[in-house]
C-alpha cells in the first residue's frame, strides 16, 4: 500500500531504503536542477578527474529547464523533463552518492541497477504541470553554467514538493506494476 511521506534533503541511505514504488513523497529543503547539457558537462568533469561544481552526495537532482521567472517570482513554470536522456550519465552520479532523481518517463535497466546497488530512488513529478509545481519552489539561484540558460544548474529551495516513487532501492518499477494492473488482452 502506498504511503505519504515527508522528507528533507539531503537524503540518507536510510531515508531512501524505506521508500517503495507508488509512495507519495513531499520533498523539502534543497533540490539541484540539471538536464541534458549540464549532465554532459558534469560527466566530462568526472571523466577528466576534476571537481564538480556541486557535491552530489545525498542530493536530489531535478530534471527541469524552467521558463524565465516573471518579476517578483522565484522561477517560471517548472515541470519535469523526460528522464531517459540522462540515463547515460546517471549511474556514475548515483555511484558518487546521488540519492534521488526527479523526472518523468522510464529509466534504463542500468540506472535501475545502479539505484539498487548504491541505494538511490527515482521520483516522478507530473509532466506538464509546470505552473502548479512552480508554487512549491520558494527560491531559485543559478550555481553553475549560467551560459546554458534554461539548462543551467540551479539550487532550488522547495516546500512540500510533490513526487511519486517510480523506482525504489529494491529494483521495483511503478510503470511495470501500474500498467500490468490496467492492461487488458
Amino acid at each position: 500500500m502506498s504511503q505519504q511521506i515527508r522528507l528533507t534533503t539531503p537524503l540518507t541511505t536510510d531515508d531512501v531504503e524505506k521508500l517503495r514504488i507508488g509512495d507519495k513523497v513531499l520533498l523539502n529543503g534543497v533540490l539541484f536542477t540539471g538536464r541534458d547539457a549540464a549532465h554532459k558537462r558534469l560527466f566530462d568533469l568526472i571523466h577528466d578527474g576534476k571537481e564538480l561544481p556541486i557535491d552530489v552526495k545525498g542530493q536530489v537532482i531535478y530534471y527541469v529547464g524552467p521558463t524565465p521567472a516573471k518579476p517578483g517570482k522565484p522561477i517560471g513554470s517548472a515541470g519535469p523533463t523526460t528522464s531517459y536522456r540522462m540515463d547515460p550519465y546517471s549511474p556514475k552520479l548515483i555511484e558518487l552518492g546521488l540519492k534521488g532523481m526527479i523526472g518523468k518517463g522510464n529509466r534504463s535497466q542500468a540506472v535501475i541497477d545502479a539505484m539498487k546497488q548504491f541505494r538511490a530512488v527515482y521520483f516522478g513529478a507530473t509532466g506538464g504541470a509546470g505552473a502548479l509545481i512552480a508554487k512549491r519552489i520558494k527560491k531559485a539561484e543559478i550555481v553553475a553554467y549560467p551560459d546554458l540558460g534554461p539548462e543551467a544548474i540551479r539550487r532550488l529551495e522547495v516546500e512540500d514538493f510533490p513526487v511519486t516513487v517510480i523506482n525504489d532501492t529494491k529494483g521495483n518499477d511503478l510503470f511495470v506494476e501500474g500498467i500490468s494492473r490496467y492492461a487488458q488482452g
Binding site: 527541469v64 515541470g79 507530473t126 506538464g128 509546470g130 505552473a131 502548479l132 534554461p150
Partner: peptide, 22 residues
Amino acid sequence: VLRELKENARIAREEKAPICQD
C-alpha cells in the same frame, strides 16, 4: 494526476503563466 493537470491549467490561465515549462 488528471485533477493536477486541470488545476495546473487553471493556475496557468489565471496567473498568465506557461502551462508547461517546455
